[in-house]
Nucleic acid binder design. Structure first.
Length: 108
DNA sequence: GAGATGACGGGCT
DNA sequence: AAGCCCGCCATCT
């Protein structure tokens, strides 16, 4: 099982209408500093995958850019299609920010 | 085995 | 508050 495979398996656990950050995904995989690789793995995803890659954004809720202006544009449409409100290529991580199970260390 | 790259993330000004 | 720069880790060659 490669790092990328873990990414695909993990993002598939993101519920509809929610989003997550690359760093959060990487951290959930054991490499909180491998945020780049999360995107690297998602970038390798083909068209028509079973992986909800569009539910993965930057740490600030911003949509990433890949050089292809169509990718972030599609992501924006998919998010809105799920009920996620996007403003200026940004979503309210405060409202749609998904948190992976197992690392539930909220206190208070 | 080593070098180069990239859907990121945080600090400074 | 917004923009620029380097470092990080895994993948590809």
């Amino acid at each position: 099982m490669s790092f990328r495979k873990r990414v695909y398996a993990l993002v598939q656990t993101i519920p509809l209408g929610k989003v997550a950050g690359y760093g959060h995904v990487a951290a959930a995989l054991g490499s909180p500093r491998a945020a780049r690789q999360v995107g690297f793995a998602l970038a390798a995803l083909p068209g028509g995958t079973d992986v909800p890659w569009h539910r993965v954004l930057r740490s600030s809720g911003h949509i990433a850019q890949q050089g292809d202006p169509g990718r972030p544009l599609l992501q924006r449409g998919l998010l809105e299609a799920e009920g996620v409100v996007v403003e200026q290529n940004r979503v309210a991580m405060d409202r749609y920010g998904w948190v992976f199970p197992g690392g539930a260390s909220e206190m208070g």
